[in-house]
Design a binder for these strands. Sequence first.
DNA 1: ATAAAAAGTTTACGCGCGTAATCTTTCATC
DNA 2: GATGAAAGATTACGCGCGTAAACTTTTTAT
Lengths: 343, 343
Amino acid sequence: MAGKRVRNMEEFAELSGISRPTVSKYFNNPDSVRKTTRARIEQALEEYDYRPNIYAMNQNRRLTKNIGVVVPYLADPFFAEIARNIERRCIDAGYFPLLFSSHGETAQENAILDSLRSLKPAGVLLAPLGRRSDMDHVRRFCDEVPTVLFDSYLADVGAAFVGSDHAQVVRLIVDYLCRSGEPPVYFEMRNLVNPNANRRRNGYLAAMESLGQTPEILKIDGDGWNFEEIGFRGGVAAIESGGFATNTVLCNNDRLAIGLIAAAWSKGVRVGRGPGCTLRVAGMDDHPFSQFTCPPMTTIAQDYANISDTSVEQLFAALENDAGSADRVEILYEGRLVMRDSA
Amino acid sequence: MAGKRVRNMEEFAELSGISRPTVSKYFNNPDSVRKTTRARIEQALEEYDYRPNIYAMNQNRRLTKNIGVVVPYLADPFFAEIARNIERRCIDAGYFPLLFSSHGETAQENAILDSLRSLKPAGVLLAPLGRRSDMDHVRRFCDEVPTVLFDSYLADVGAAFVGSDHAQVVRLIVDYLCRSGEPPVYFEMRNLVNPNANRRRNGYLAAMESLGQTPEILKIDGDGWNFEEIGFRGGVAAIESGGFATNTVLCNNDRLAIGLIAAAWSKGVRVGRGPGCTLRVAGMDDHPFSQFTCPPMTTIAQDYANISDTSVEQLFAALENDAGSADRVEILYEGRLVMRDSA
DNA sequence: ATAAAAAGTTTACGCGCGTAATCTTTCATC
DNA sequence: GATGAAAGATTACGCGCGTAAACTTTTTAT
């Protein structure tokens, strides 16, 4: 591709000895032309430096090869990892992923969906803000663009939903904690930012009940997505006001737990299940940093890989059934207990 | 904007009672039309649901309003935060930021630059991989597209470079560590992934020398961007083979330090500067998670805000001087000592 | 009020490509 | 080697908008 610069498809078609319409077909789908033709085009592609003008391509196409990927908060490594995996899959399938972060703000999410619409994407993978999502806005968007929702559940929106089975996730860790020591107090934010948090809380209640234990919920204050900070402050406040109902705390998510563990440290409370430890702290998510807390955090791993892979697959499936008439699918993956030293 | 859907600018122009060329002017720059005209257009915009076709707009424009933002590793909250800030600034200035992550891979960085070129961006903000960047590729790109580099220094490439003054950063923390206890051993990866690491190491050498101390460098193995993991393993290995030359370790960056602190914990070595502590660990960057390590990490804060703001400003400045003939600028920001409890 | 400048209108063309229709060549099959 | 099907070539049109040129209206300055 070192050769001279080619202006447009017309010129490139001449150079490769193939007609422009056929070259056009090739770029839309390399498999749609004969092998020998494809070879000739690809050889010319090596010789000359030509790439079709994206804007001219997409202007006349009803749909582009773009795929929008929208996450609520990209500074959270959890979403960064998922986005990365999704990106890879889309590229491998010949699509062009475009990554957006809502930064936790409703207005931002709406704005992203609006501009996404004018990009005529083939489809969109959306992890909505959840509680703070503008449901009507999201629904209107999904009516026009094939969309698969993941991570955060919104009822009856989009072509599919892929996420974790939070009831199972919570049951797993509650079981473990009860089996191995005192039953857990549940540590969560007062203002739940997404429906997953709700499901987890309900899962906790159900799991405790089925084990004949008395649930105990500690709601902490704080707003936004700075969960570690919120967990830290909530933890300090809890410890200062006399500690927890039992010696075991289950946090709504790892980031909160990271904050709580730091809070315990700062107050001289030793976390862990070894001798001399007076507090067990468990999280949920298996956040990338959770293995580096002190002590390393016991948590439940969400099935990152399956969630992102399946989301992409579901989107592709939805793109096939042009009609979009297929029934809405909901796929939930189970979590896996990751036993480390904090609980 | 609830009204009926408008097909194209022609139709919208009719509805607003303004000629199409003028409407076109408006969309390219709302200030380029008379206030009264602008008002009429914007009123029509409220009434009808119209947005110009992006693809048709950009097809004939030499440059678009797109701004490419490329970072080496988006799963690192440091870059996620910078990207977020940059995004905000671009949007406020009427541009459309497009975010890409090289995921630590040369091929990926090259691919991003290639597709970026065909997006005809007005400009690009690039934090290159550094050592693993394909210099020729980057240089060719910068010759065609106005580009500001940030974070990772590449010599003589792009319209400007904005980053940290690593020499100063290291001097600051070395000074502090020497003043407050034993001089630091320097903890870094054997395969330096970017030139900043080099500068920091040299900064360490210089600072130690100027203080009349003997520098001591510990190189650890590991490849890729999973720094915490690498720091952890390196830490465990170092401790098992007899510990460090002094009781103080300065890590090349916070993520390595996070791993080292976890390693110390796992080996029963108490980190901090209080009584009973046998190891001091300091990092550099003030990574978002560093305040939640146990103990909280002493580190040097990079000037996130200034670096991202200035990068954007420099890019806009470069866009003004169409010619691109202006001299290449290099702007370095100083770090700030963040004293916490780990050192 | 009047001239000059600024802004808007009309008209017209082209960008680079998608794509449909018709015709011609190539290929696989027996 | 004949035959039908599949693929490519030719021709032609249009997408939605940028933009230039020539002309007309509005605004600003004197």
